[in-house]
Amino acid sequence: MMSLDAFSALLVSGLVLGSIYAMMASGLSLVWTTLGIFNFAHGVFMALGAYVAWTVSDAAGLNLWLGFAIAMSVAFMAGLGILIERTVVRPFYGQRDMLLITVMTTLAVMMFLEKGIQMLWGPRLKQLRPIVEGKVSLLGITISAQEAFIIVIAPLVLAALWAFLRWTSTGRGIRAVGQNPDAAKLIGINASAMFAVTFALSAVLAGFTGILLGSLRLLTPGLGAEPLIKAFIIVIFGGMGSLAGTIGAAYIIGLVEAFLITTVGFYWAPSALFIILIAVLLVRPEGLFGRRVA
């Protein structure tokens, strides 16, 4: 039997991972349900958000400026999201092979941005200062305040996203376009504006996740690559198309991964996770929480 301390350590690290994954995957899932495309550049958005925040906060040199840095990064990501939707996604709406073509164009964007980051910021390793400093005691173990902050902020961000989609007219417009674009257009919803807003929102979510992760890990252009693969697994696991399913799956995968790391080790954890994924898909091809579609 595992001791209580070990168990709570596992729980906390699982929650940190789950929070990161949930914010990452919800943006991916949002774009998928609304635009019907899968954005492979989502991971590099994460890295870019972190780098922009680093530049702003490092230039100012003060921890106080970190809030400003986050705001700048968020604004930048929103603009970039809209730009990318216009240039590499929009031209392909309604095409027969749209899904495949946009996979390739977003992959190209990923290549472009990843190399761009490397050229612009250079190979020197960087790290963001934590948003909150110090240590926190939680469930009998001590973790950094930043990790505690992530555990707390993620549900708040996700709740805000949910409230936005549920109660604001823009949010409802986004959902309407996702469910039935033609009917949405007929009742006067500006579908193309909704697509742009969705893409911007998802880019902002990715950038913000990058800022949170950027103080736990070192910044590299490939910062988002590994979380993106996890986000794929999560979105499949959760059953595509449901935000709640995605978020639930993110926390499950985070906890499972933390468990696997302590049992089979850091190196075997991704393989074990993949095998579990395939096993689940063989039994439930529609995902864990997905509904069977005829």
């Binding site: 998928w32 499949i236 991704p270 994924l277 898909l281 063989l282 091809p285």
Partner: peptide
């Protein structure tokens, strides 16, 4: 092929992509 033959569309992209990373 084991998972791929049971899946469609974007699921195939994700599983095959994840396979490469694995």
């Amino acid at each position: 092929a084991l998972p791929v033959i049971r899946l469609k569309g974007i699921y195939v992209v994700l599983v095959t992509f994840a396979f490469g990373q694995l």
